[in-house]
Each structure stands twice: as structure tokens, then as C-alpha cells.
Design a protein around this nucleic acid. Structure first.
Lengths: 216, 216
DNA sequence: TCTCTGCCGTACCGTACGGTACGGTTCGAT
DNA sequence: ATCGAACCGTACCGTACGGTACGGCAGAGA
């Protein structure tokens, strides 16, 4: 077998994971300076092995992003015993996770890489990042929202719209500014305010979709 | 004079603008396939001229982005005769302009280019795009918001927060998905819904910050 | 001990592209 | 008519990097 890459199941040997780690590190450090030679040197392996394992540069890039993006596991929020308090806590937790992820250096790097990739008519990386980022959150959040609606704690007609509003309230302009390298938005600057932002976003979300609110 | 580039004043001769147009076209078509040779051929000029005018590849890129980004002129909303109706119309107009811009092919290309650039410790392009995109809107919107507050039509403590909420409500996850090349978000798919989205976002904004609403 | 397999390290090749040099042409100024 | 500046087209150079080939070594199995 020439390729060990499995897109659906991440079956990477420890050695291969070490290589992927090296690749990710280089990506984070050097931006897009991901050259095969650099990865080989960093991981103390031969370029021949890289090509044997990952096919070509794009394969290595895809494997790295795939492997790393799949690592982002949002903590499962339990859905049992739903009441006003636990619902709010769940929503807040989602907001916190979302903000924590997108402001992380790894996430910024992966998103930049995927955007760069998308600029070359290759959308695979974009889809991977999308699938493991926003869409993953959407899959996990929607059931919670709908459960909240069933329990008459929330009011909305489209859970899709509710999710997207939530995303907007939480992310605002933070992600695009980070991706664009806005110096005014240092890492510390953001992380220090996460808790306040989480609370504000949650408040706003409930103001819009809470049962007592007039629906917007 | 070797360089005609003025960062602050865009003094480009028609011929130079033709070159920049060619560069932008290539950028939109080929993604990042912006080679000096390609630009020279497309613009029917010599590479020597390119280097004479723009210094190096980065200079050409910067000039292109700068020149194009500055073209995005949000229509000035008049601030006189402020009442509930005109305020709402202004907000709606901002939402419409913002959505129209970020979903445009040129904007997507410029943002992708800037993000790619930012991945290489070069934040200049990012700042240019930021300055002419989100920050430009902010500069224009904030006075309106504050006028609305002075007229007791809006309620908020921080106009900065109000602006960022507005941004989030309008943009949601549209921009990042477009940048990542989400196929599920076709150009038509988005533009058809702009009016509805604009209205929804405005409604939500007033629900949160309207004078009658409990402030979130 | 022999051999085969997998992998490291390095050298190598081809190409794409940034940047330079130069001859030839147009055109305005004198 | 002449000169010079600006510029086009093309050829050229150097380098960086993707991808390949190969020698050597270490370890597992017979």
C-alpha cells in the first residue's frame, strides 16, 4: 500500500504523527513556509519517506490539517435535565469554546492555510476546516437549541438562523481581524476578555431568542 | 523619480491603473497566481516597467490592494433630520453595503490575498484591507449610532460594542465561509438573500439596542 | 550469519519565478 | 533632423523548491 492516509479514519502511526506535529509547528512558526525539506529536517526523516507516506506536498498539508482539525473536540454538553439554568450554561459553554478555539494560534494558522488554499481553486482544506470548525459547532448546538425550544425556553422558527445569529454574536469581527493580522488585537488582549464577551454574547442571544423576549 | 507610488494619495497614471487592473483581474481569476510575467503579459508592458513603477512583487501587490480597497466607497448617509425612520434606514443601508461588499468577488480575493500575506509575518496588506473594510464602516457607523443615542433612539454604553455587535449580526458566518470556499454558499445563494438578511439583522440590532428594548 | 525491509541522509534534476540587462521603438522636446 | 526619455519584448541569471534516485544502516526474521 502506497498511501497510509485515510481521510475518514485517522490511522497514523506515532512516527507519522510526529511528522505531522513537525509540519504543524513549522506552519505555525513560519506561516506558509512549509517546505518538504524543512519538514524532513525538523522531523528527522527523509523526504523520500514523506512522499511515500503522504504522496505529495498537498497530501502532507491535507493530512496535517485534517489530523489537527479533528483534534478540536468540543466538550459534549449533556442534554438531560434541561432547564433555564443548564440551558444557559450550555450556551455559554459553546460560546466559550468557540471563542477559545478561533483565537488560538493553531486555529488561526489552519484557517489561514485553508484560505490560502482556497485561493487556488482547491477547496478541500477549506472544507476540512469548515467541517471541523463552524459546522461541527452547528451540529452540536442545533440539538441543544431545539431542545430549548421544545422546553419553551427559547423561541425561534429556524434553528439554522438561530445558530448563525449565535455565531455572529460570539465571533463578531474577532476572527477576520485575527486572520488579517490586526496588531491591535493581541492574543492576550482577546483572551483576557473572553469571559466578558461570552457573557455579553449569551445575554444578547437570550434577549433575542429567550422565551420571554419578543422574537426578532 | 523612481517610484510613483504614494501610499497616502493614490496618484496612479491611467497606464498604471491599467496595470493594476490587470493585476487585480489575474488575482481574481488565478487566485494567488500573480506572477510578474503574467501581469506584464496581461497588461502588455515590460517587467522592467513593473519593477520601475512598483519596486518589487510585494510593491505591486500592495499597490493593487491599496488602490482597489480604496475604491470601496460606502455611500455617505446623511445625518441630518434624524428620526426613528431615517435612523433605521441608515442602519439598514450600512448592513446592505457591508453584506454586498464582503460577498463580492473582489472583496473575497483581496481578503484572501491579505490573509495569505498575513501568514508570512507581513501585516501590511491585512491592515490595508482592514482599514478600508471593517474599520471604514466602523468610522462611518459610530457617529450615526451615537447620534441615535443622543436622540434617545438607541441605548448602549459603548458604541464600540454596539458596532461590533452590528458587524456580527450582519456578517455572521458568511465571510469566513466564503473565504474558505464553501461550495454550499454560492454567490447567487447569498446575494438573493441579502435583503432578507439585512432586514433580519437590523431587526435584531434594534431589538438589542433600540430605546424601547431592555438593554442587553 | 545472511538477507530483506524500511528508513535516513544527501545528492541530484527540472522547473517556475523573481529580478536584471539590453536592444529596438515610439514620441515629445529642442 | 536629432536627441533622449520612456517603455516594450525578450532573453537571461540565480535561486528556491517539489520531486526522485541512491547509498548506507539498523533491525527483524530465517
Amino acid at each position: 500500500m502506497a498511501l497510509t492516509i485515510k481521510v475518514n479514519e485517522e490511522t497514523f502511526t506515532p512516527r507519522q504523527q510526529a511528522v505531522l506535529t513537525a509540519a504543524l509547528d513549522l506552519l505555525v512558526e513560519n506561516g506558509d513556509g512549509l517546505t518538504m525539506t524543512a519538514v524532513a529536517r525538523r522531523a528527522s526523516c527523509s523526504k523520500e519517506t514523506l512522499y511515500k507516506w503522504f504522496g505529495d506536498r498537498d497530501g502532507l498539508l491535507t493530512a496535517t490539517v485534517q489530523w489537527q482539525a479533528a483534534k478540536v473536540r468540543m466538550p459534549q454538553v449533556d442534554r438531560s435535565g434541561l432547564n433555564a439554568k443548564t440551558l444557559r450554561a450550555s450556551i455559554e459553554q459553546f460560546a466559550r469554546d468557540l471563542l477559545t478555539v478561533i483565537t488560538g494560534e493553531v486555529s488561526i494558522t489552519l484557517n489561514r492555510t485553508a484560505v490560502t488554499h482556497a485561493a487556488q481553486e482547491k477547496d478541500s482544506l477549506g472544507m476540512i476546516v469548515l467541517e471541523n470548525g463552524p459546522l461541527a459547532i452547528r451540529r452540536r448546538l442545533k440539538p441543544i437549541l431545539e431542545a430549548g425550544r421544545d422546553a419553551r425556553l427559547l423561541r425561534f422558527t429556524s434553528s439554522e438562523d438561530a445558530y448563525r445569529t449565535f455565531f455572529g454574536l460570539v465571533v463578531r469581527d474577532v476572527q477576520i481581524r485575527l486572520l488579517l493580522g490586526d496588531k491591535a488585537l493581541t492574543q492576550a488582549n482577546v483572551t483576557d476578555n473572553i469571559e466578558a464577551d461570552v457573557k455579553a454574547a449569551t445575554d444578547q442571544f437570550f434577549a433575542l431568542y429567550g422565551a420571554k423576549a419578543t422574537q426578532a
